[in-house]
């Protein structure tokens, strides 16, 4: 393993029709690091995240998971995706399955666990997000915050090397955001490697080790949270953070 870099993105480009969404993005994430990606809507943050497990195919550039180049055409992408947890903005739980089966399905059908092993593992992950007692509830019987916690458990059960969060709290009622952020904070403290696209500035600031401010397909500024939030070098970063704090009365 080259040093302890888990994800390396090199000069990533993506275009939809005439619109260039990503214009050469590069960064690395180390083992145990939590990286926040912030910035205005429509600047390619989600596209970037989806390129990392190739739910979206990048046009140009390379992505490595540890030493494996996952943008190589020779790679078995299904094998790679098992090692990358992905949490969606709108949860995307399987509607016909209970919380337990949502977490268990990938273990049984992708990883080949027996039902007994899968059940044990799934119950462990549900307990980890505080939802062991909801194991037999269907998604429609859970609140948004609970659904998102199940989807985090579903991703964690696969024992990923990195977790990608795509605005995990943006579809939630304000009073449900806290429970999801708390689970994510615990994960970060346990040393999970994470990339989090978020509008929760308080979370980025207090939980993450590194912050990237992105706009119009490029990284405008990058650094530890104290630097990006308290002493931003770029005028555009200052302007963006200023608008956010106007809205919420100080970073949340």
């Amino acid at each position: 393993m080259s040093s302890n870099i888990v994800v390396r993105v090199e000069d990533l480009h993506k275009r939809y029709g005439n619109e260039e969404i990503l214009k050469g993005v590069s960064f690395t994430v180390r083992q145990g690091e939590a990286l926040a990606i912030i910035g205005p809507s429509g600047t390619g943050k989600s596209t970037l995240l989806r390129c990392i497990n190739r739910l979206t195919e990048p046009d140009r550039g390379r992505i490595f998971l540890e030493d494996t180049e996952i943008t190589s055409p020779h790679v078995d992408i299904n094998k790679i995706r098992q090692q990358i947890g992905f949490v969606f903005q709108d949860f995307n739980l399987f509607a016909h399955l209970t919380a337990l089966d949502n977490v268990r399905l990938g273990l049984m059908k992708v990883k080949g666990f027996s039902k007994k092993e899968a059940t044990e593992r799934a119950m462990h992950e549900l307990a980890r997000v505080g939802l062991a007692e909801k194991a037999h509830a269907y998604p429609a019987q859970l609140s948004g915050g609970q659904q998102q916690r199940v989807s985090i458990a579903r991703a964690l059960a696969m024992d990923p090397k990195v977790m990608l969060f795509d605005e995990p709290t943006s579809a939630l009622d304000p009073e449900l955001i806290g429970e999801v952020l708390q689970v994510m904070q615990e994960l970060a403290e346990e040393g999970m490697t994470m990339i989090v696209v978020t509008h929760e500035m308080g979370f980025a600031r207090s939980v993450c080790d590194e912050v990237i401010f992105m706009e119009k397909g490029v990284i405008v500024e990058q650094g530890p949270p104290e630097q990006v939030f308290l002493n931003p070098q770029q005028p555009r970063t200052r302007q963006f953070l200023g608008k956010i704090s106007e809205l919420y009365g100080g970073a949340r």
Binding site: N78, I80, R81, F86, N92, G106, K109, V110, A155, M158
Partner: peptide, 28 residues
Amino acid sequence: AIKPGQLLAARALGMTRWQAIRYIVLPQ
């Protein structure tokens, strides 16, 4: 009528296209 995001979630877990259809689309 099935929300397409569920297919993305299935693929993100490492399921093949056919597995996603078999275990997510067909039962619903």
